[in-house]
Write a protein that binds this DNA or RNA. Structure first.
Length: 496
RNA sequence: GCGGGCGUAGUUCAAUGGUAGAACGGCAGCCUUCCAAGCUGCAUACGUGGGUUCGAUUCCCAUCGCCCGCUCCA
């Protein structure tokens, strides 16, 4: 039985994991709200990441625990920051639409052949067009040869000439629209007066806030290279096409680590982090067979990166392909160098024992928290026609929004007070549900659908001998354990 | 942003130019000693705004949203 996104989205809404943002107003494209269970799930994933990074970071290759500290930086920073990072200069790609072919092109990806003598039409091509293909098409459309033309990228061509240009996929001139700017960054204005002088941006990624605080952290927290700075937070991108539920949304959450090390140690740490991050996802229940590692081809690398490995997950909407869950990028010393230049501040690191200064290189494991939540949801969704609910959420117990439900077998007699007592006892340590209403099968089914791994049922035997039934979600099997053992049982099962 | 499809209870669906039904779910109650049983009752929908019409959920337009393809994805 294949997993269908429609069913997963419906369950998420039905049970309170994820709702469309502004639902009562008809929603807003690219924005989602997390409901009671979705928030628990997201917090679980976030807390686990934070614990693994900052509280109990991994043991390094030399056998000693590595050092990572956390920050929580502002979403809005000085706009100069985005000039330094390349987001303002590099990501304002002008786009051109063709009214005839209905295609859209990046203006700098279209090459225009302009007649040298200024007579006749100009012809445009995709930048990857083959030479013989160009020659053939030029001959057909203009009866001239490539030598009769000079070339320019479309973004360099005066808009006034567009009427005379034949688009890459059509036969007549004048179908290209004027270039439109596509800025992926949301902007806003700081202060009461809205004007260009106080224009600011919502961060398109959280990592900049880490680099901006590099000096502050080094000066204030006694860290020594190699070390890491971690951050979890919201980021915003004005995606052209938000798609696939929360996979590509315009407001999302990232969990990013910037690992600062010496250049010569980069290969070692790169491998280290790929392994660490892989183990992270495996330990949360994503099977190896659903993960894929993509060594990003050089042409596709971001402007700052010399190597990136994407950890991809087989989301249902991508299957049989995979889509990016996490990127582990070698960012070199690009960011610190850029920010040092734009800010005029020294952002190098002084290695006191060796008496030398250098700009650390950076390995960045960067993952989407909200994408991680989606992966957990998709992985957990399990169709099972042999159970009343027809479906259950097979969350790893450590990720499950509710760790257990306490169910008095009947709403009468003495089952309820005993259940209430157990509930009060457990809720100090675990997120648990107490459900008294309706028959037991209905309640088991309800817990299955929200992925609660264990149900503790109180019956007459509980009153007699102090044991409860533990009902296990995946197998629906039951065993009896003593009330005194319930906490230890849960602790043991939930351990990550 | 373009092209195509779609929009009816929480979910999944049905019907209709004369203002809508079901199933499941939810809630309340009865019943129940372990998997949505049974019984009773209750609540909840034509995405939004215009237009045509005596009358629109139905036809038209716009808008918002969802799905597919293109484009984009730091």
């Amino acid at each position: 039985m294949t997993k269908d996104m429609k069913d997963i989205v419906a369950l998420c809404k039905r049970r309170g994991f994820i709702f469309p943002a502004s639902d009562i107003y008809g929603g807003l494209n690219g924005f989602w709200d997390y409901g009671p269970l979705g928030t628990e799930l997201k917090n679980n994933l976030r807390d686990r990441w934070w614990k693994d990074m900052v509280i109990t970071p991994p043991i390094g290759p030399d056998g000693a625990p590595i050092e990572i500290v956390g920050v929580d930086s502002s979403i809005i920073q000085n706009p100069r920051c985005w000039e330094a990072s390349g987001h303002i200069g590099g990501f304002n790609d002008p786009m051109v639409d063709c009214k005839e072919s209905k295609k859209r092109y990046r203006a700098d990806h279209v090459v225009v052949y302009l007649p040298k003598d200024g007579e006749g039409v100009a012809v445009s091509f995709d930048k990857d067009a083959e030479d013989d293909e160009i020659e053939k098409r030029l001959k057909k459309l203009t009866k001239k040869t490539p030598a009769d033309f000079e070339t320019a990228k479309l973004d360099q061509v005066d808009v006034a000439k567009f009427a005379n240009i034949i688009g890459p996929d059509v036969k007549e001139a004048g179908t290209l629209t004027e270039p439109r700017q596509f800025n992926m960054m949301f902007h806003t204005y700081v202060g009461a007066a809205a004007g260009d002088e106080n224009k600011a941006y919502l961060r398109p990624e959280t990592c900049a806030g880490i680099f901006l605080n590099f000096k502050n952290v080094v000066d204030s927290s006694r860290v020594k290279v190699p070390f890491g700075i971690a951050q979890v937070g919201k980021a915003f991108r004005n995606e052209v096409t938000p798609r696939n539920f929360v996979f590509r949304s315009r407001e999302f959450e990232q969990m990013e680590l910037e690992w600062f090390c010496e250049e010569e140690d980069v290969p070692m740490w790169f491998d280290f982090w790929v392994e660490q991050r892989t183990n992270f996802w495996l330990s949360l229940g994503l099977p190896k067979s659903s993960l894929h590692f993509l060594d990003v081809p050089k042409d596709d690398l971001a402007h700052y990166s010399s190597r990136t490995i994407d950890v991809e997950y087989q989301f249902p909407f991508a299957a049989p392909d995979f889509d990016e869950l996490e990127g582990i990028a070698h960012r070199g010393c690009f960011d610190l160098t850029q920010h040092a230049e734009f800010s005029g501040q020294k952002l190098d690191y002084f290695d006191q024992p060796n008496n030398r200064r250098f700009v650390p290189h950076v390995i960045e494991p960067s993952t989407g928290l909200t994408r991680g939540v989606l992966a957990l949801l998709c992985e957990a969704y399990t169709v099972d026609e042999n159970r009343p609910s027809g479906v259950y959420m097979n969350f790893h117990p450590s990720m499950a929004p509710k760790k257990a439900a306490i169910l008095p077998l009947t709403a009468k007699e003495d089952h309820v007070p005993t259940a209430q007592k157990l509930y009060m006892d457990l809720r100090d340590e675990f997120v648990v549900d107490l459900d008294i209403k309706q028959n037991i099968g209905k309640r088991y089914a309800r817990q299955d659908e929200i992925g609660t791994p264990y149900c503790f049922t109180i019956d007459n035997d509980t009153l007699a001998d102090g044991t409860v039934t533990v009902r296990e979600r995946n197998t629906m099997s039951q065993e009896r354990i003593h009330l005194d053992k319930v906490k230890d049982f849960l602790r043991e099962k939930i351990k990550g």
